[in-house]
């Protein structure tokens, strides 16, 4: 996998994550919606950084799809938190896959993104009452 394909996969994942947060936010309450808003903003920032980087590499930056299929209906708070956990775990996996393909500042971008996904997944598991709230190898 090349640097470009690793970053392109990450961009696709960030697009999907942003879509998911737009859906799940409506099902959350006061404290949890604030966590989701911060998380969504972080995914937007990573998306923007990826688009800039792919442009600099003169690589194609795939746009967001108009819509994405969610794995399950987001009917309530519990389902919304489960979706948040899933999204963060999937994003962590994609950033982890990108790590061996990149060096320098791109490596920094990827490891910071992986770290942040793992932290947000732990936040979501804690809010959802999932124990343990951590996994030994995030993204694996």
């Amino acid at each position: 996998m090349s640097t470009t394909s690793g970053l392109t996969d990450a961009l696709r994942a960030e697009h999907a994550a942003i879509f998911a947060y737009g859906t799940l936010g409506a099902r959350l309450d006061g404290a949890t919606v604030a966590v989701a808003e911060v998380a969504e903003a972080a995914h937007r920032a990573r998306r923007d950084a990826l688009i800039l980087r792919l442009n600099a590499l003169q690589a194609s930056a795939p746009p967001a799809e108009p819509a994405y299929a969610l794995p399950a209906p987001v009917a309530d708070r519990a389902a919304a938190l489960q979706l948040m956990i899933t999204v963060e775990e999937r994003c962590a996996a994609i950033w982890r896959q990108a790590l061996p393909t990149v060096t320098g500042d791109d490596r920094r971008l990827a490891v910071d993104a992986l770290v942040d996904c793992a932290v947000r997944a732990t936040k979501a598991r804690t809010l959802a009452g999932v124990k343990p709230a951590t996994v030994p190898f995030p993204g694996r």
């Binding site: 896959q97 490596r107 920094r108 992986l114 770290v115 932290v119 709230a133």
Partner: peptide, 28 residues
Amino acid sequence: RETCLTAPSYRAALLGSIAAARASHVEA
């Protein structure tokens, strides 16, 4: 994280996961 940044590519994923796990421990 620092070790991951300077590691050869074939070790980057393992070290990145370890950095992420430790950061999630901070959260926990």
